[in-house]
Design a protein around this nucleic acid. Sequence first.
DNA 1: CGTCTATTTGAATGTACTCAAAAGCGGTGG
DNA 2: CCACCGCTTTTGAGTACATTCAAATAGACG
Lengths: 194, 194
Amino acid sequence: MDTDEIIIKKLFKTLVFTPEELKLIKSLFIKVSVSKGDILMSPGDHVDSQFYIIKGCLRTFHIDSHGKEYTIQFGIDDWWMSDYTAFFRGGTAIMTVEALQDSHLYMINRENKDYLYKQIPEIDKFFRIKLERAFGTFQRRILSSLSMSAAERYVDFMKYYPELAKCLKNYHIASYLGITTESLSRIRKELVYN
Amino acid sequence: MDTDEIIIKKLFKTLVFTPEELKLIKSLFIKVSVSKGDILMSPGDHVDSQFYIIKGCLRTFHIDSHGKEYTIQFGIDDWWMSDYTAFFRGGTAIMTVEALQDSHLYMINRENKDYLYKQIPEIDKFFRIKLERAFGTFQRRILSSLSMSAAERYVDFMKYYPELAKCLKNYHIASYLGITTESLSRIRKELVYN
DNA sequence: CGTCTATTTGAATGTACTCAAAAGCGGTGG
DNA sequence: CCACCGCTTTTGAGTACATTCAAATAGACG
Protein backbone atom coordinates (compact mmCIF):
# COMPACT_ATOMS: atom_id res chain seq x y z
CA MET A 1 0.00 0.00 0.00
CA ASP A 2 1.49 3.35 -1.01
CA THR A 3 1.53 6.55 1.01
CA ASP A 4 -1.48 8.00 -0.75
CA GLU A 5 -3.54 4.97 0.08
CA ILE A 6 -2.64 5.30 3.76
CA ILE A 7 -3.69 8.93 3.66
CA ILE A 8 -6.96 8.14 1.91
CA LYS A 9 -7.74 5.43 4.46
CA LYS A 10 -7.23 7.93 7.26
CA LEU A 11 -9.25 10.56 5.45
CA PHE A 12 -12.28 8.35 4.88
CA LYS A 13 -11.83 6.35 8.08
CA THR A 14 -14.81 3.99 8.13
CA LEU A 15 -15.17 3.54 4.40
CA VAL A 16 -13.66 0.68 2.43
CA PHE A 17 -12.86 1.12 -1.24
CA THR A 18 -12.22 -1.15 -4.21
CA PRO A 19 -8.86 -0.73 -5.96
CA GLU A 20 -10.62 1.13 -8.78
CA GLU A 21 -12.27 3.51 -6.34
CA LEU A 22 -8.94 4.14 -4.62
CA LYS A 23 -7.40 4.95 -7.94
CA LEU A 24 -10.22 7.34 -8.74
CA ILE A 25 -9.91 9.09 -5.40
CA LYS A 26 -6.17 9.46 -5.81
CA SER A 27 -6.67 11.01 -9.21
CA LEU A 28 -9.05 13.67 -7.89
CA PHE A 29 -6.85 15.04 -5.11
CA ILE A 30 -3.78 17.16 -5.66
CA LYS A 31 -0.95 17.00 -3.16
CA VAL A 32 0.27 20.41 -2.03
CA SER A 33 3.15 21.35 0.24
CA VAL A 34 3.29 24.78 1.83
CA SER A 35 5.73 26.58 4.10
CA LYS A 36 5.07 28.36 7.35
CA GLY A 37 3.62 31.76 6.59
CA ASP A 38 2.29 30.86 3.15
CA ILE A 39 -1.16 32.15 2.26
CA LEU A 40 -3.36 29.55 0.59
CA MET A 41 -6.38 31.74 0.01
CA SER A 42 -7.07 35.47 0.19
CA PRO A 43 -10.15 37.69 0.33
CA GLY A 44 -11.57 38.18 -3.14
CA ASP A 45 -10.35 34.84 -4.45
CA HIS A 46 -12.87 32.69 -6.19
CA VAL A 47 -13.14 29.80 -3.74
CA ASP A 48 -13.08 26.59 -5.65
CA SER A 49 -11.07 24.31 -3.39
CA GLN A 50 -10.86 22.77 -0.02
CA PHE A 51 -7.81 21.45 1.82
CA TYR A 52 -7.37 18.26 3.80
CA ILE A 53 -4.42 18.58 6.19
CA ILE A 54 -2.24 15.49 5.96
CA LYS A 55 0.27 17.02 8.33
CA GLY A 56 0.66 20.58 9.55
CA CYS A 57 -1.24 23.52 10.98
CA LEU A 58 -3.44 26.13 9.28
CA ARG A 59 -5.82 28.86 10.28
CA THR A 60 -8.72 30.63 8.59
CA PHE A 61 -9.23 34.24 9.60
CA HIS A 62 -10.99 37.40 8.57
CA ILE A 63 -9.47 40.86 8.47
CA ASP A 64 -11.84 43.76 9.09
CA SER A 65 -11.64 47.29 7.72
CA HIS A 66 -9.41 48.37 10.63
CA GLY A 67 -6.92 45.58 9.94
CA LYS A 68 -7.97 43.51 12.93
CA GLU A 69 -7.83 39.73 12.59
CA TYR A 70 -10.54 37.31 13.69
CA THR A 71 -9.70 33.61 13.57
CA ILE A 72 -12.65 31.46 12.59
CA GLN A 73 -10.94 28.10 12.64
CA PHE A 74 -7.65 26.35 13.21
CA GLY A 75 -6.78 23.06 11.58
CA ILE A 76 -4.20 20.38 12.25
CA ASP A 77 -3.63 16.85 10.99
CA ASP A 78 -6.73 15.19 9.60
CA TRP A 79 -8.87 18.37 9.48
CA TRP A 80 -10.42 20.09 6.50
CA MET A 81 -9.92 23.80 5.83
CA SER A 82 -11.27 26.40 3.47
CA ASP A 83 -13.33 29.56 3.53
CA TYR A 84 -16.60 27.78 4.08
CA THR A 85 -18.65 30.95 3.98
CA ALA A 86 -17.67 30.87 0.32
CA PHE A 87 -16.74 27.31 -0.66
CA PHE A 88 -20.14 25.74 -0.10
CA ARG A 89 -21.89 28.47 -2.03
CA GLY A 90 -19.35 28.88 -4.77
CA GLY A 91 -18.66 32.48 -3.90
CA THR A 92 -15.80 34.84 -3.25
CA ALA A 93 -13.53 34.49 -0.21
CA ILE A 94 -13.84 36.88 2.71
CA MET A 95 -11.26 34.88 4.66
CA THR A 96 -7.54 34.26 4.53
CA VAL A 97 -6.17 30.74 4.93
CA GLU A 98 -2.62 30.75 6.28
CA ALA A 99 -0.10 28.02 7.04
CA LEU A 100 1.14 28.32 10.63
CA GLN A 101 3.67 25.55 10.05
CA ASP A 102 5.16 23.77 7.07
CA SER A 103 2.25 21.61 5.96
CA HIS A 104 1.34 18.80 3.59
CA LEU A 105 -2.14 19.00 2.13
CA TYR A 106 -4.56 17.31 -0.18
CA MET A 107 -6.45 19.76 -2.32
CA ILE A 108 -9.72 19.02 -4.09
CA ASN A 109 -11.84 21.37 -6.14
CA ARG A 110 -15.60 21.46 -6.25
CA GLU A 111 -15.86 19.84 -9.65
CA ASN A 112 -13.79 16.85 -8.59
CA LYS A 113 -15.62 16.58 -5.31
CA ASP A 114 -18.97 16.56 -7.06
CA TYR A 115 -17.64 13.91 -9.42
CA LEU A 116 -16.51 11.88 -6.43
CA TYR A 117 -19.96 12.11 -4.85
CA LYS A 118 -21.48 10.88 -8.09
CA GLN A 119 -19.08 7.98 -8.50
CA ILE A 120 -19.06 6.84 -4.86
CA PRO A 121 -22.37 7.78 -3.22
CA GLU A 122 -21.36 6.52 0.25
CA ILE A 123 -19.08 9.55 0.38
CA ASP A 124 -22.20 11.70 0.55
CA LYS A 125 -23.13 9.93 3.74
CA PHE A 126 -19.58 10.21 5.04
CA PHE A 127 -19.50 13.98 4.67
CA ARG A 128 -23.08 14.33 5.89
CA ILE A 129 -22.06 12.70 9.17
CA LYS A 130 -18.86 14.78 9.36
CA LEU A 131 -20.89 17.95 8.90
CA GLU A 132 -23.37 16.89 11.56
CA ARG A 133 -20.53 16.61 14.05
CA ALA A 134 -19.20 20.00 12.98
CA PHE A 135 -22.69 21.42 13.42
CA GLY A 136 -22.71 20.36 17.06
CA THR A 137 -19.22 21.74 17.57
CA PHE A 138 -20.23 25.11 16.15
CA GLN A 139 -23.27 25.31 18.38
CA ARG A 140 -21.04 24.70 21.37
CA ARG A 141 -18.66 27.41 20.24
CA ILE A 142 -21.52 29.87 19.88
CA LEU A 143 -22.77 28.89 23.31
CA SER A 144 -19.34 29.53 24.82
CA SER A 145 -19.03 32.88 23.09
CA LEU A 146 -22.43 33.83 24.55
CA SER A 147 -22.14 32.42 28.03
CA MET A 148 -18.49 32.36 29.05
CA SER A 149 -16.07 35.13 30.04
CA ALA A 150 -12.87 35.58 28.08
CA ALA A 151 -10.88 33.85 30.82
CA GLU A 152 -13.22 30.86 30.86
CA ARG A 153 -13.09 30.58 27.08
CA TYR A 154 -9.29 30.61 27.21
CA VAL A 155 -9.12 27.87 29.85
CA ASP A 156 -11.68 25.86 27.89
CA PHE A 157 -9.72 26.26 24.68
CA MET A 158 -6.45 25.15 26.24
CA LYS A 159 -8.16 22.18 27.81
CA TYR A 160 -9.89 20.96 24.64
CA TYR A 161 -7.16 21.69 22.12
CA PRO A 162 -3.81 21.22 23.88
CA GLU A 163 -2.14 19.80 20.76
CA LEU A 164 -3.39 22.71 18.72
CA ALA A 165 -2.11 25.23 21.24
CA LYS A 166 1.43 23.98 20.65
CA CYS A 167 1.63 25.48 17.19
CA LEU A 168 -0.10 28.76 18.03
CA LYS A 169 1.14 32.16 19.12
CA ASN A 170 -0.86 33.85 21.86
CA TYR A 171 -2.13 36.42 19.41
CA HIS A 172 -3.61 33.62 17.30
CA ILE A 173 -5.50 32.38 20.32
CA ALA A 174 -6.60 35.90 21.22
CA SER A 175 -7.99 36.43 17.72
CA TYR A 176 -9.88 33.14 18.03
CA LEU A 177 -11.34 34.06 21.41
CA GLY A 178 -12.33 37.50 20.18
CA ILE A 179 -10.10 39.48 22.55
CA THR A 180 -6.95 41.58 22.19
CA THR A 181 -3.46 40.20 22.86
CA GLU A 182 -3.21 42.61 25.79
CA SER A 183 -6.32 41.17 27.38
CA LEU A 184 -5.12 37.62 26.85
CA SER A 185 -1.81 38.52 28.44
CA ARG A 186 -3.63 39.84 31.52
CA ILE A 187 -5.84 36.77 31.68
CA ARG A 188 -2.80 34.51 31.57
CA LYS A 189 -1.13 36.52 34.32
CA GLU A 190 -4.21 36.13 36.53
CA LEU A 191 -4.33 32.39 35.94
CA VAL A 192 -0.76 31.87 37.09
CA TYR A 193 -1.64 33.24 40.52
CA ASN A 194 -4.74 31.02 40.92
CA MET B 1 -52.28 15.54 -3.57
CA ASP B 2 -52.92 15.60 0.17
CA THR B 3 -51.56 18.07 2.71
CA ASP B 4 -48.75 15.81 3.82
CA GLU B 5 -47.51 15.47 0.28
CA ILE B 6 -47.40 19.23 -0.10
CA ILE B 7 -45.41 19.49 3.11
CA ILE B 8 -42.99 16.78 2.05
CA LYS B 9 -42.46 18.47 -1.30
CA LYS B 10 -41.59 21.69 0.48
CA LEU B 11 -39.36 19.87 2.95
CA PHE B 12 -37.29 18.08 0.31
CA LYS B 13 -37.56 20.87 -2.25
CA THR B 14 -35.45 19.68 -5.16
CA LEU B 15 -36.11 15.96 -4.77
CA VAL B 16 -38.77 14.05 -6.66
CA PHE B 17 -40.23 10.89 -5.17
CA THR B 18 -42.17 7.89 -6.44
CA PRO B 19 -45.58 7.27 -4.84
CA GLU B 20 -44.04 4.43 -2.79
CA GLU B 21 -41.28 6.68 -1.52
CA LEU B 22 -43.78 9.36 -0.59
CA LYS B 23 -45.76 6.79 1.34
CA LEU B 24 -42.63 5.66 3.15
CA ILE B 25 -41.64 9.21 4.06
CA LYS B 26 -45.14 9.97 5.35
CA SER B 27 -45.01 6.88 7.53
CA LEU B 28 -41.73 7.91 9.18
CA PHE B 29 -42.73 11.39 10.28
CA ILE B 30 -45.12 12.11 13.12
CA LYS B 31 -47.21 15.24 13.00
CA VAL B 32 -47.12 17.25 16.21
CA SER B 33 -49.01 20.38 17.21
CA VAL B 34 -47.79 22.51 20.08
CA SER B 35 -49.01 25.67 21.77
CA LYS B 36 -47.15 28.86 22.50
CA GLY B 37 -44.99 28.31 25.58
CA ASP B 38 -44.81 24.53 25.28
CA ILE B 39 -41.43 22.93 25.91
CA LEU B 40 -40.53 20.28 23.36
CA MET B 41 -37.23 19.24 24.88
CA SER B 42 -35.47 19.86 28.20
CA PRO B 43 -31.93 19.51 29.55
CA GLY B 44 -31.27 15.92 30.53
CA ASP B 45 -33.67 14.45 27.98
CA HIS B 46 -32.31 11.72 25.79
CA VAL B 47 -32.34 13.44 22.41
CA ASP B 48 -33.76 11.12 19.86
CA SER B 49 -35.77 13.40 17.67
CA GLN B 50 -35.63 16.38 15.42
CA PHE B 51 -38.43 18.76 14.42
CA TYR B 52 -39.30 20.20 11.04
CA ILE B 53 -41.37 23.34 11.41
CA ILE B 54 -44.35 23.20 9.06
CA LYS B 55 -45.71 26.44 10.48
CA GLY B 56 -44.76 28.30 13.64
CA CYS B 57 -41.83 29.62 15.63
CA LEU B 58 -39.43 27.84 18.00
CA ARG B 59 -36.20 28.60 19.80
CA THR B 60 -33.39 26.48 21.22
CA PHE B 61 -31.66 27.91 24.26
CA HIS B 62 -29.36 26.99 27.09
CA ILE B 63 -29.82 27.91 30.73
CA ASP B 64 -26.64 28.33 32.77
CA SER B 65 -26.13 27.70 36.47
CA HIS B 66 -27.25 31.27 37.30
CA GLY B 67 -30.51 30.81 35.41
CA LYS B 68 -29.45 32.98 32.50
CA GLU B 69 -30.72 32.07 29.04
CA TYR B 70 -28.63 31.93 25.88
CA THR B 71 -30.48 31.42 22.60
CA ILE B 72 -28.58 29.28 20.13
CA GLN B 73 -31.12 29.22 17.34
CA PHE B 74 -34.55 30.40 16.30
CA GLY B 75 -36.66 28.55 13.79
CA ILE B 76 -39.67 29.46 11.69
CA ASP B 77 -41.52 27.79 8.80
CA ASP B 78 -39.41 25.31 6.87
CA TRP B 79 -36.54 25.12 9.40
CA TRP B 80 -35.30 22.18 11.40
CA MET B 81 -34.86 22.33 15.16
CA SER B 82 -33.39 20.17 17.89
CA ASP B 83 -30.56 20.21 20.40
CA TYR B 84 -27.92 19.48 17.83
CA THR B 85 -25.11 19.36 20.36
CA ALA B 86 -26.89 16.15 21.41
CA PHE B 87 -29.00 14.89 18.49
CA PHE B 88 -26.15 14.19 16.10
CA ARG B 89 -24.18 12.35 18.75
CA GLY B 90 -27.08 10.55 20.38
CA GLY B 91 -26.49 12.18 23.73
CA THR B 92 -28.31 14.04 26.43
CA ALA B 93 -29.83 17.48 25.89
CA ILE B 94 -28.19 20.57 27.35
CA MET B 95 -30.71 22.78 25.59
CA THR B 96 -34.38 23.62 25.90
CA VAL B 97 -36.57 23.78 22.80
CA GLU B 98 -39.55 26.05 23.28
CA ALA B 99 -42.50 27.02 21.10
CA LEU B 100 -42.73 30.80 20.78
CA GLN B 101 -46.01 30.50 18.91
CA ASP B 102 -48.60 27.79 18.29
CA SER B 103 -46.78 25.56 15.85
CA HIS B 104 -47.27 22.58 13.56
CA LEU B 105 -44.32 20.25 13.33
CA TYR B 106 -43.09 17.08 11.74
CA MET B 107 -41.11 14.97 14.15
CA ILE B 108 -38.69 12.23 13.14
CA ASN B 109 -36.52 10.09 15.37
CA ARG B 110 -33.04 8.93 14.61
CA GLU B 111 -34.02 5.37 13.84
CA ASN B 112 -36.56 6.44 11.26
CA LYS B 113 -34.19 8.97 9.79
CA ASP B 114 -31.48 6.36 9.41
CA TYR B 115 -34.00 4.05 7.79
CA LEU B 116 -34.96 6.85 5.43
CA TYR B 117 -31.32 7.39 4.45
CA LYS B 118 -31.00 3.70 3.72
CA GLN B 119 -34.15 3.48 1.65
CA ILE B 120 -33.67 6.72 -0.29
CA PRO B 121 -29.94 7.47 -0.59
CA GLU B 122 -30.45 10.83 -2.36
CA ILE B 123 -31.68 12.11 0.96
CA ASP B 124 -28.13 11.78 2.24
CA LYS B 125 -27.03 14.21 -0.42
CA PHE B 126 -29.96 16.49 0.34
CA PHE B 127 -29.05 16.81 4.01
CA ARG B 128 -25.34 17.00 3.24
CA ILE B 129 -25.99 20.09 1.14
CA LYS B 130 -28.34 21.54 3.76
CA LEU B 131 -25.65 21.10 6.39
CA GLU B 132 -23.03 22.71 4.18
CA ARG B 133 -25.19 25.83 3.96
CA ALA B 134 -25.70 25.79 7.73
CA PHE B 135 -21.94 25.45 8.17
CA GLY B 136 -21.35 28.68 6.28
CA THR B 137 -24.11 30.42 8.24
CA PHE B 138 -22.54 29.37 11.54
CA GLN B 139 -19.15 30.64 10.49
CA ARG B 140 -20.71 33.98 9.68
CA ARG B 141 -22.42 34.08 13.06
CA ILE B 142 -19.13 33.34 14.79
CA LEU B 143 -17.45 36.05 12.78
CA SER B 144 -20.12 38.57 13.79
CA SER B 145 -19.85 37.60 17.42
CA LEU B 146 -16.09 38.16 17.21
CA SER B 147 -15.96 41.29 15.13
CA MET B 148 -19.13 43.30 15.65
CA SER B 149 -20.36 45.40 18.56
CA ALA B 150 -23.66 44.52 20.20
CA ALA B 151 -25.38 47.40 18.39
CA GLU B 152 -24.04 46.26 15.03
CA ARG B 153 -25.12 42.68 15.69
CA TYR B 154 -28.61 43.90 16.56
CA VAL B 155 -28.95 45.94 13.39
CA ASP B 156 -27.59 43.04 11.39
CA PHE B 157 -30.02 40.61 12.96
CA MET B 158 -33.04 42.83 12.30
CA LYS B 159 -31.94 43.33 8.74
CA TYR B 160 -31.40 39.64 7.95
CA TYR B 161 -34.30 38.15 9.87
CA PRO B 162 -37.14 40.67 9.76
CA GLU B 163 -39.81 37.95 9.56
CA LEU B 164 -38.30 36.17 12.51
CA ALA B 165 -38.19 39.36 14.58
CA LYS B 166 -41.98 39.59 14.32
CA CYS B 167 -42.54 36.63 16.63
CA LEU B 168 -39.78 37.50 19.12
CA LYS B 169 -39.71 39.49 22.33
CA ASN B 170 -36.76 41.79 22.84
CA TYR B 171 -35.41 39.55 25.57
CA HIS B 172 -35.32 36.67 23.10
CA ILE B 173 -33.22 38.77 20.76
CA ALA B 174 -30.98 39.90 23.63
CA SER B 175 -30.34 36.30 24.65
CA TYR B 176 -29.45 35.50 21.04
CA LEU B 177 -27.06 38.43 20.76
CA GLY B 178 -25.45 37.58 24.09
CA ILE B 179 -26.40 40.78 25.88
CA THR B 180 -28.84 41.70 28.65
CA THR B 181 -32.31 43.10 28.00
CA GLU B 182 -31.19 46.34 29.62
CA SER B 183 -28.33 46.71 27.17
CA LEU B 184 -30.57 45.94 24.23
CA SER B 185 -33.02 48.54 25.44
CA ARG B 186 -30.25 51.15 25.55
CA ILE B 187 -29.03 50.14 22.11
CA ARG B 188 -32.54 50.51 20.70
CA LYS B 189 -32.88 53.92 22.33
CA GLU B 190 -29.63 55.07 20.71
CA LEU B 191 -30.71 53.84 17.30
CA VAL B 192 -33.93 55.85 17.36
CA TYR B 193 -31.94 59.08 17.63
CA ASN B 194 -29.63 58.23 14.73
C1' DC C 1 -59.27 48.11 36.39
C1' DG C 2 -55.84 45.22 38.20
C1' DT C 3 -52.29 41.84 37.38
C1' DC C 4 -48.57 39.92 35.14
C1' DT C 5 -45.00 40.39 31.97
C1' DA C 6 -41.84 43.13 29.29
C1' DT C 7 -39.24 47.17 28.72
C1' DT C 8 -36.97 51.21 30.20
C1' DT C 9 -34.16 54.13 33.23
C1' DG C 10 -30.58 55.19 36.72
C1' DA C 11 -26.32 54.66 39.31
C1' DA C 12 -22.42 52.07 40.41
C1' DT C 13 -19.33 48.43 38.94
C1' DG C 14 -16.60 45.52 36.09
C1' DT C 15 -14.48 43.81 32.06
C1' DA C 16 -12.18 44.44 28.03
C1' DC C 17 -10.32 48.04 24.92
C1' DT C 18 -7.06 51.69 23.13
C1' DC C 19 -2.78 53.74 22.86
C1' DA C 20 1.82 54.00 24.22
C1' DA C 21 5.82 52.10 25.91
C1' DA C 22 8.79 48.61 27.90
C1' DA C 23 10.47 44.04 28.26
C1' DG C 24 11.31 39.39 26.47
C1' DC C 25 12.69 36.16 22.97
C1' DG C 26 14.89 34.20 18.87
C1' DG C 27 17.59 34.35 15.20
C1' DT C 28 21.42 36.52 12.33
C1' DG C 29 25.68 38.45 11.39
C1' DG C 30 29.86 40.55 12.88
C1' DC D 1 29.82 35.23 22.06
C1' DC D 2 27.68 39.45 21.86
C1' DA D 3 24.97 43.17 19.58
C1' DC D 4 21.25 44.06 17.02
C1' DC D 5 16.83 43.48 14.82
C1' DG D 6 12.14 42.11 14.37
C1' DC D 7 8.46 40.05 16.37
C1' DT D 8 5.66 38.80 20.48
C1' DT D 9 4.25 39.56 24.96
C1' DT D 10 3.69 42.34 28.93
C1' DT D 11 2.61 46.50 31.62
C1' DG D 12 0.38 50.97 32.61
C1' DA D 13 -3.13 54.57 32.43
C1' DG D 14 -7.27 56.17 30.83
C1' DT D 15 -11.63 55.11 28.42
C1' DA D 16 -15.64 52.75 26.46
C1' DC D 17 -19.07 49.49 26.66
C1' DA D 18 -21.92 46.25 28.83
C1' DT D 19 -23.31 44.45 33.39
C1' DT D 20 -25.69 44.32 37.90
C1' DC D 21 -29.21 45.52 40.91
C1' DA D 22 -33.08 48.19 41.90
C1' DA D 23 -36.94 50.67 40.66
C1' DA D 24 -40.09 52.85 37.55
C1' DT D 25 -42.94 52.64 33.41
C1' DA D 26 -45.43 50.54 29.68
C1' DG D 27 -48.26 46.90 27.47
C1' DA D 28 -51.23 42.98 27.16
C1' DC D 29 -54.96 40.47 28.68
C1' DG D 30 -58.69 38.81 31.37
